[in-house]
């Protein structure tokens, strides 16, 4: 058990080092900006995975929290004269509160019903952003005058913003990892696999799911703040069904049973959309082919699929045969 923890700490340290060194490796503002975007979408996918991977609830309206927080922060700084920090805190509060309310509505059902209710709620939020022109600027959106300074650091340059996004992302990742290992995380997984048994054991299944929903909304709102600071602009596309579906695809592509999965999924989709599309005209088709390939060959997603492949390769090597059973590379929570 201790070796396990030490291994995780080493991996975490390496990942942090990689995040910190990335701007030097990439060189060029364009790639640093791309990395920031990957982090923002990875955070959105991670927050959604709290519902999908942990609680087994598939949501099609998760971009709503990203959008609500981004709109709230942009509106409060632009129209209500809030400072950057109060606006950010208020935006997080508004995003989380809306998740609390939406959770009450959506958790009346699970499975397909839950999916449809979240879809409907997401569309309502989109409709408000699109139609309430005096508040949201309609499809022209709202602009943010400037990125805020955080602890005296100006986020104006691509590298500075990248480090800010990386710090927030690392914090979120650690939080979600801790959550996955905690009793609360274990209970959540219980409600996913055996809701009736969990209820019989005296757990409040609905409350557990609601907590997961609110936490997912909170981290989605954090992603929304990053989104706003990065783009300095928010329009209804940010909370459209397309955005929600894309977040869902990121989770499913990378693999919902691991924490690394949504991050990998977000990286693949963001890079195909923004980088590969410069070389391949039919990049949407390419994305489709990737999905189909993953579904056919790694139905659990890229990360669990590759981990499984690695395990089988190790098992083939004769000198390793009979050694301690190998662990899943990044999976902490789910048995394969």
């Amino acid at each position: 058990m201790r070796r396990e923890a030490a291994g995780a700490a080493v991996r975490g340290g390496l990942a942090l080092l990689g995040l910190a060194l990335l701007p030097w490796v990439l060189g060029g503002d364009f790639y640093v900006n791309l990395a920031s975007q990957v982090l923002i979408y990875a955070l959105l996918a991670l927050s959604l995975n709290l519902l999908i991977g942990a609680a087994g609830l598939t949501s099609l309206g998760h971009a709503a929290y990203l959008g609500i927080a981004a709109y709230a922060a942009a509106w409060l700084t632009g129209n209500a004269g809030f400072g950057a920090l109060p606006a950010a805190l208020a935006a997080l509060a508004i995003g989380t509160a809306s998740a609390a309310v939406f959770g009450v509505l959506a958790l009346r059902a699970s499975g397909l019903g839950f999916l449809m209710i979240t879809l409907a709620l997401g569309q309502i939020v989109w409709g408000v952003a699109y139609r309430w022109v005096s508040l949201t600027g309609g499809d022209n959106g709202i602009r943010l005058a400037d990125r805020p300074a955080v602890l005296g650091f100006d986020l104006g340059t691509p590298v500075a913003f990248y480090y800010f996004a990386a710090a927030v992302f690392a914090l979120a990742f650690l939080f979600l990892r801790r959550l996955a290992l905690s009793p609360l995380g274990a209970c959540l997984r219980g409600t996913k696999e055996q809701p009736r048994r969990m209820a019989m054991l005296g757990h409040h299944v609905w409350m557990l799911r609601w907590i997961a929903f609110v936490l997912a909304g909170f981290w989605g709102s954090v992603a929304g703040l990053l989104y706003l600071y990065y783009h300095k602009f928010v329009s209804p596309q940010a909370l459209s069904l397309q955005q929600s579906a894309e977040a869902l695809l990121m989770v499913l592509l990378g693999g919902s049973s691991t924490l690394a999965g949504p991050v990998v999924g977000a990286a693949v989709i963001t890079l195909v959309k923004n980088l590969v599309s410069s070389y391949v005209d039919r990049w949407l088709t390419l994305l489709g082919v990737i999905f189909v390939a993953v579904v056919v060959f790694m139905p659990q997603g890229i990360v669990p699929g590759l981990a499984g492949l690695l395990r089988r390769l190790r098992a083939l090597r004769p000198e390793r045969a009979g050694a301690a059973p190998p662990r899943a590379a990044a999976g902490h929570e789910a048995a394969p």
């Binding site: 503002d29 364009f30 900006n33 791309l34 499809d139 022209n140 596309q237 397309q242």
Partner: peptide, 29 residues
């Protein structure tokens, strides 16, 4: 036709392709 992607593409044209003048984009948003 997605604002976020339009922004990345603009950065790509300016920072990576070193374009000196831009034409477009299609939509107002």
């Amino acid at each position: 036709g997605v604002p976020a992607q339009a922004r990345t593409k603009t950065q790509e044209l300016v920072e990576r392709e070193r374009c000196q003048v831009l034409i477009g984009p299609l939509a107002a948003f």
